[in-house]
Write a protein that binds this DNA or RNA. Structure first.
Length: 582
RNA sequence: CGGGGCGUAGCUCAGCUUGGCUAGAGCGUCUGGUUUGGGACCAGAAGGUCGCAGGUUCAAAUCCUGUCGCCCCGACCA
C-alpha cells in the first residue's frame, strides 16, 4: 500500500482526552478515532492489526478443533428472560423495542452468546453420539458500560471471539477446557503479548473451573497477585492467602481486657484516631445475612473481606451485608461497634485474626470498644478460614514465597459453565441408556481488540509504537527520503513492488515530505522493519534497514535488498514463533 | 449513579478571576517560492453560531440558571 493512497492521520500532539499510553498512541498513530464515549472507529492501520489478531485467533481455534459459525447480534429478549440474565445483566444489556407491523418486538444486542448458542444446540443435539462439540465465532458484542474508559480497553461495543463447548461429561468438558487453555497460550504468545494465566473466581462449579489471561500493565483494570517464585497467579477475588506456619503467640504478653469509650467512632480510622492504635491491631467485625441467618465475619482491621470466600466458608447460597436492624439485634449496638466478644450468632474468623494479640474490637455497645482482646481468653473460635482479599506481599499459598500485586488487562477468559444454561434452555441429550441429561458446557472468550490495545499499552518507546511482526499492520515500511529524486524513487518503487509480489505486507511512504517528518511518522506507527532509501545510501549502493526495536540500522546492497529483507523477516518470524508453546 | 475537571480554529492551548476595540498563539491546511537524512524557511490565504438554550446587562467567550457532551476517581463489570 502507498501511504498517499491510504488513510493514516498521524498526530504530533497528544490529544487531551487520552491519558494512558495505548489510547494516546492509538490516536496519534492513526489507528483509531473516537465516535462517542465507548465507541471507536478503527482506521485502516488499526483495523489491519485487529484483523491480524483475528486471523491468529481463528487459526488456533481451528487447530484446537473448534468450528466456526456466526450468530446474530440481534437476539430476542425472551432468551435472556428464560436464563434470568435480563435482570442479572440489568442496565448492561442493551435492549429495546421495535415496531414490526402491528406488534412490538423486544430485542437485545448480544453482550455474549450463551443463550443463542445453547438454544441452537437444544434444537439440534439429541444424542450423546453427536458430542462433544465446540463452536466459536468472532463477533461484535454490545454492553452498556456504565463507564467506558481507557480508550479502546473498555468500550460498549467490541470484537470478541467466543467459543462454547458441549459435552456429556465433566471429562469431556475438562478435555476441551485444556485444549482451549493451550490454544489461548499459543494465541497470546503468537501475538507477542506478555501474558499470565491466572486462576479466577469460578462460581458454582468451584475448583480450577476458570482462568483469566492477563497482560500485566500498570493501567490494567484488574488486579492480580503473582508469585514469581512458583508461578502461582490468581485474580484478587480468587487468590488464596498463604500462611507461614509459626508458633502461637506467647500468652504472657497479653494485657488485661479493658473498655474504652469511643463516642461516634464507628469506622476503623476513627477508632484508630480515638484510641491511638493502628488498623493492624484491630479486628473488623462484619455482619452478613447468610441464607437469611445472621453471620459475623472477622478480618483484621487493615484487611478487606472477600465475599466469595465468605460464601464458600459459610456454605451458603446467598450472602448480603446485614441491615442496621439486624446488626442492632445481634450486637445490641448500632452499626460500627460490633465485636466478637459475647456475640450471639455464628462467627467465622480469618486466619490472621487469631494472631492479633491485645486486639482492639467493637464493644457491642454504643460508643464503646474493647482493648486487650485475645482469642481463646476473651472469645472463642474453633477454626479459622481464608476470608479476605489477597494483598501485595502476601505469602504465596503454594511455596510460601512473597506474592506481588500487579495490574493486568484481561484479554481472555476460559470458564467451565456446567449446566446452568442447558438446564434453563432445555438443551438435553439422550445417553446410551436412553436417559435425558443436560449438556455440560464451557465457554471461552477472547477480546480481539484488547489484544491490539494490550500490545499498544505494553510495547512502545518515547517515539511511538513497537509492533511484533505477527500483529503489525504492515511488516515492512519502505521510505524514500526524497521523492523528487528520480534515483531514490526508482529504487524504492522497485523494492516495494518486488516485496509486494512476494506477498509481504509492505507500506511505501511515497509522500512528498521532508525526511525527518517521514522518519518520525515511521517511528510513531511502529512498523517492525524500516527500509530507508536516501541520497547517502544510494552513493554507496545500499539501503538502510532497521528493526523498530533496535537503535542501529544496517546497510544492505540495493541489488540484494529484497532478498535480504525477506530473509530478515523469515528469521524474525522463527524467533517470534520460538516463544509459542506447543 | 456519587465526586472532580474540561468544552474557544482540524490538534494543543491562551483569553474568563475584574464583562467593553475586528476573539488570539503555536502546530496543521491551502497558494507561490526557496529547500530536502530526524517534525524546514520566506511571503500570502482560508478556517470560529467561543458546546447548546435561556437569563442579567447599553454590552457576554467572560457573570447567573439549565442542558448536552467528553475525560478522570469511585461504585458497577457475563
Amino acid at each position: 500500500m502507498r501511504w498517499s493512497k491510504t488513510f493514516i492521520p498521524t498526530m504530533k500532539e497528544v490529544p487531551s482526552d487520552a491519558e494512558i499510553p495505548s489510547h494516546q498512541l492509538m490516536l496519534r498513530a492513526g489507528l483509531i478515532r473516537q465516535l462517542m464515549a465507548g465507541a471507536y472507529t478503527y482506521l485502516p492501520l488499526g483495523w489491519r492489526a485487529v484483523r491480524k489478531a483475528e486471523a491468529i485467533v481463528r487459526e488456533e481455534m481451528d487447530r484446537a478443533g473448534a468450528i466456526e459459525l456466526f450468530m446474530p447480534a440481534l437476539q430476542p429478549i425472551e432468551l435472556f428472560e428464560r436464563t434470568g440474565r435480563k435482570s442479572a445483566f440489568g442496565n448492561v444489556l442493551i435492549n429495546f423495542q421495535i415496531q414490526r407491523g402491528d406488534r412490538r418486538v423486544h430485542l437485545a444486542l448480544g453482550p455474549t452468546h450463551e443463550e443463542v448458542v445453547t438454544d441452537l444446540m437444544a434444537r439440534h443435539i439429541s444424542s450423546y453420539r453427536q458430542l462433544p462439540v465446540c463452536v466459536y465465532q468472532i463477533q461484535t458484542k454490545f454492553r452498556n458500560e456504565e463507564r467506558p474508559r481507557f480508550g479502546v480497553l473498555r468500550t460498549s461495543e467490541f470484537l470478541m471471539k467466543d467459543a462454547y463447548s458441549f459435552g456429556t461429561s465433566v471429562d469431556q468438558l475438562n478435555s476441551v477446557y485444556d485444549q482451549m487453555y493451550k490454544a489461548y497460550c499459543r494465541i497470546f504468545a503468537r501475538a507477542g503479548l506478555n501474558y499470565l494465566p491466572v486462576e479466577a473466581e469460578s462460581g458454582p462449579i468451584g475448583g480450577d473451573a476458570s482462568h483469566e489471561f492477563m497482560v500485566p500493565a500498570n493501567n490494567g483494570e484488574d488486579r492480580i497477585v503473582h508469585c514469581t517464585a512458583c508461578g502461582y497467579a490468581a485474580n484478587l477475588e480468587r487468590a488464596e492467602t498463604g500462611r507461614v506456619p509459626k508458633a502461637k503467640p506467647v500468652s504472657s504478653s497479653m494485657t488485661q481486657l479493658s473498655e474504652a469509650s469511643t463516642p461516634g467512632a464507628g469506622s476503623i480510622e476513627a477508632v484508630c484516631r480515638a484510641l491511638g492504635t493502628t488498623p493492624r491491631q484491630m479486628i473488623k467485625t462484619l455482619l452478613f445475612l447468610a441464607d437469611g441467618e445472621p453471620l459475623a465475619c472477622l478480618v483484621r482491621g487493615d484487611h478487606e473481606a472477600n465475599e466469595a470466600k465468605i460464601r464458600r466458608a459459610a456454605g451458603c447460597k446467598s450472602l448480603q451485608m446485614a441491615d442496621a436492624v439486624t446488626i442492632q439485634s445481634v450486637t445490641g449496638a448500632p452499626v460500627g461497634f460490633a465485636g466478637p466478644v459475647g456475640l450471639k450468632c455464628r462467627v467465622l474468623a480469618d486466619h490472621d485474626v487469631a494472631e492479633v494479640v491485645d486486639a482492639v474490637v467493637g464493644g457491642n455497645a454504643v460508643d464503646m470498644h474493647l482493648r486487650g482482646v485475645n482469642v481463646g481468653r476473651d472469645w472463642q473460635v474453633d477454626a479459622t478460614h481464608d476470608l479476605r482479599m489477597a494483598e501485595d506481599a502476601d505469602v504465596c499459598p503454594r511455596c510460601f514465597g512473597r506474592m506481588q500485586l500487579v495490574h493486568g488487562i484481561e484479554v481472555g477468559h476460559v470458564f467451565k459453565l456446567g449446566t446452568k444454561y442447558s438446564v434453563s434452555l432445555d438443551a438435553e441429550y439422550l445417553d446410551e441408556k436412553e436417559l435425558r441429561h443436560p449438556l455440560i458446557m464451557g465457554c471461552y472468550g477472547i477480546g480481539v481488540n484488547r489484544i491490539v490495545a494490550a500490545l499498544c499499552e505494553t510495547s512502545y518507546d518515547e517515539h511511538g509504537l513497537i509492533w511484533p511482526l505477527s500483529i503489525a499492520p504492515y511488516e515492512v515500511l519502505v521510505v524514500p527520503l526524497n521523492v523528487s529524486d528520480t534515483e531514490t524513487v526508482e529504487s524504492a518503487e522497485r523494492i516495494y513492488a518486488e516485496l509486494r509480489n512476494l506477498g509481504i505486507d509492505v507500506l511505501l511512504d511515497d509522500r512528498d515530505a521532508r525526511a525527518g517528518f517521514k522518519l518520525k511518522d515511521a517511528d510513531l506507527i511502529g512498523i517492525p522493519l524500516r527500509v530507508v532509501i536516501g541520497g547517502r545510501g544510494l552513493k554507496e549502493g545500499v539501503a538502510e534497514v532497521r528493526w523498530r526495536w533496535e537503535s542501529e540500522s544496517r546497510k544492505i546492497p540495493l541489488e540484494s535488498a529484497v532478498g535480504d529483507v525477506v530473509e530478515m523477516l523469515a528469521r524474525q518470524k522463527i524467533q517470534e514463533l520460538a516463544k509459542v508453546p506447543n
